[in-house]
């Protein structure tokens, strides 16, 4: 339970970190809050030659507000978002999702960017950023890129980031002040990765209705026929209706998987319609 020996660098800016990653030629790994990579290093599941600690880069810790969006630095930790005193629907959603992750001691150090880059399908930010269709801003020595969440995550533990590329910030479009949302995790023990996640956004002024099933075998699923139904009727669909759409997207799910996911989605819809 002790990590293998690795080289360690702690750059002061994104340019320095990008250079180190480029020089490492795929043998480097970015460490942000270390709440996932730390355990994996301890268990020797991950054994990179070089760790690039980006926890000391000030520009990655800022949150910038614009009229139509907020831009959250990759190294903003979960607890900062959890404690965010902002009573807008978006502020409450980020606070709720951030506060759902693991335990406070983990949330004090774990970062939103680290969570998105690790791309565990059951991660709260993966589901939430899919719900909000956030864009992810990346940097490498070759330049910057902007990727929408649905293009960023490719599958389990797999993102569109190249090995010399790092996530810099998450650009979240603001939802309107009349927007409704719901969020539900099916979870056996507080703080664990959930078996299933449901997230719902009903934003009538922006004509956006989105229902996301998270904790799938790969990327989150966007349940378009369910979201259209909910927006058009204001009713909570039956479990069977939700199971049928999830089953089409994930044919491998058995009856128990389907029920877990349908319940998460249904309860999130109920919460949004309250």
């Amino acid at each position: 339970m002790k990590a293998h020996a690795f080289s360690f660098e702690r750059p002061l800016d994104v340019a320095g970190a990008s250079r180190l990653l480029a020089e490492a030629k795929g043998e480097g790994r970015v460490l942000a809050g270390g709440q996932t990579l730390g355990p994996m290093l301890n268990m020797r599941l991950a054994m990179p030659k070089l760790i690039v600690d980006i926890g000391n880069i000030a520009e990655l810790k800022s949150i910038n507000h614009f009229s139509d969006r907020i831009v959250v630095g990759a190294c903003v930790n979960h607890a900062t978002l959890e404690d965010w005193i902002d009573l807008t629907p978006l502020g409450r959603l980020l606070s709720h999702a951030g506060g759902s992750i693991a335990y406070r001691a983990i949330r004090n150090r774990g970062t939103i960017g680290g969570s998105l880059c690790h791309a565990d399908p059951a991660a709260d930010w993966v589901t939430t950023m899919s719900l909000l269709q956030a864009s992810l801003l990346t940097a490498s020595t070759k330049g910057k890129r902007r990727l929408v969440m649905s293009d960023f995550m490719l599958g389990t533990y797999s993102t569109a980031l190249n090995s010399d590329e790092m996530l810099v910030a998450i650009d979240i479009p603001k939802i309107s002040s009349e927007a409704r949302w719901g969020y539900y995790r099916v979870c056996r023990k507080v703080g664990e990765f959930p078996e299933a996640l449901g997230a719902v956004l009903l934003d009538a002024p922006r004509s956006v209705a989105r229902v996301i099933a998270g904790g799938m075998n790969g990327k989150p699923a966007n349940l378009t026929s369910i979201s259209e139904f909910v927006a058009a009727t204001g009713k909570t669909p039956e479990l069977g209706q939700i199971e049928s759409e999830i089953g089409q997207i994930e044919p491998e799910f058995d009856a128990i998987d389907l029920r877990h996911h349908a319940v998460a989605v249904r309860r999130a819809i109920q919460m949004a319609l309250l």
Binding site: A204, V208, A231
Partner: peptide, 10 residues
């Protein structure tokens, strides 16, 4: 209030 959402780009 029910509404008609626009097609979802995602």
């Amino acid at each position: 209030k029910p509404f008609k959402p626009k097609a979802d780009s995602s």
